[in-house]
Design a protein around this nucleic acid. Structure first.
Lengths: 247, 247
DNA sequence: GAATGAAAATGATTGACTATGACTGAAAGT
DNA sequence: ACTTTCAGTCATAGTCAATCATTTTCATTC
């Protein structure tokens, strides 16, 4: 049997059954464990399925990738909380705030004391949390991405155009002097970019690991926001006046 | 069984039943206590559910804040599920569907077989559930009401004006020949009303208790939708051709 | 159209890693 | 006080990526 055929059959199987184990595939194709593993790696790389421990699940499933997010939220947790705490203190009662998706911005919510502030967010989980804490909160309309539970797309951008925020808090995957703020997803970048344009003051929340990183899509220039960070070892960035280091 | 599968199933169980015990999960999955505990810890960490002593509850804001809603979802549960099941069968692959907030419409989601259908909803919980089940789903923008987790307001209505649905599924608090379909909240009524206007076919899902009830605000006339119900004792309504009784 | 050699695909083996279930003493609920 | 539930530890079985040897594929050459 051709490798290509097997690829196609595996994808079909995963889509129909939602999940499949390496053992099952070995029997079905009379192939060795190595071969099946290689296939799954390749298909995972291509984005045709999501490889998990023991086998693979369909890409429509939301959990597997979310695990990375969960893991991620534990990395530099102390840093993020300190950053979030300071950021939350910037929000005053009269503010109209855009809150971006992301783990660091999520940490902010519990520290916000200005109960009269009004929020707009494109992150479902943030919206729920804000609403639960008694804030007035609007969510942007648009397509709900299963994996990150953020709202993206044309609709979202359109909705944002009608708002004028006093402050905006953003997450980022990379900070770079020339490339600015970057993120891996183009649709999320469009939303971030539009939101930044609508804010009087933009704040980018980032731990040390984000500096000098570049992701595929830029959503803002380095000068466009104040960076709130902590324990910055990279002296290169310390000198810029829009870099705020907190304790 | 893959760990991943178990994760997904547990989340579904928790969302459907609103709460679940460790013991129940052990029996359902034939897994040890340790495994179930580990799963619940992981899912709690991911924010997919709330771990409590003895098991877990849904992370839907429902339970903790508004016991009434939780109770409400258990009243006439059998009826509602039967109604939901039939309603779900009406959705075809080529449909562009509006799905209203409410417990009955929520039950529909697990029964929808047309995986190509596209959904718009103003209920956050519905959106998450649809996305998790692999559907393409858009949420309307607007103010997030903490308790019901529905999105309402001027923004929502504005967003809806740009859509043309093939089918819409609605909940209601009252059905009355002259007063039509009614709900207690004026802002929700505005959303429902606009959504109904944008649908080629409207379906109102209602158990027997809703007939001859009138709530403060009307969002549609009796003739504007097909009522899907069950065990209708009230003969007065049986004769209308837009009343569909299911088994 | 057979022989040749490079590239690709496969299968077996390894040690490292992950998931699981049983057990334990501590903590929580009654 | 008593029972249930909990988090942590351990041993075991299953799964993983990496490596290497073998086979297959295929274009090139004679």
């Amino acid at each position: 049997m051709l490798q290509e055929e097997r690829f196609i059959e595996i994808v079909k199987l995963v889509e129909n059954r939602k999940s499949v184990t390496v053992q099952e595939l070995m029997e079905i194709f009379n192939a060795s464990e190595s071969t099946i593993r290689r296939d799954l790696n390749a298909l995972h790389q291509m984005g045709k399925l999501i490889k998990v421990h023991g086998g693979a699940v369909a890409d429509s499933g939301y959990l597997s990738l979310d695990m990375d997010v969960a893991e991620k939220s534990n990395i530099n947790k102390e840093e993020k909380i300190a950053i979030a705490k300071y950021s939350a203190s910037l929000i005053k009662n009269e503010d109209f705030v855009f809150m971006d998706a992301g783990t660091t911005t999520e940490f902010m919510i519990d520290f916000i004391t200005a109960k009269q502030a009004v929020f707009v967010t494109n992150a479902i989980s943030h919206g729920r949390k804000l609403a639960r804490n008694g804030f007035t909160v609007f969510v942007t309309g648009g397509e709900l991405k299963g994996i990150t539970e953020a709202v993206v797309g044309e609709d979202t951008v359109r909705t944002l155009k009608r708002y004028n925020f006093t402050k905006g808090f953003f997450g980022t995957n990379g900070i770079h002097l020339e490339r600015g703020y970057t993120t891996p997803d183009i649709r999320e970048a469009l939303v971030k970019s539009q939101a930044m344009k609508r804010c009087r003051e933009c704040y980018v929340l980032a731990d040390e690991s984000k500096f000098n990183q570049v992701s595929p899509v830029t959503f803002g220039g380095f000068e466009d926001a104040i960076i709130i960070t902590r324990n910055l070892k990279n002296n290169e960035y310390k000198k810029y006046k829009n870099v705020k280091e907190v304790n």
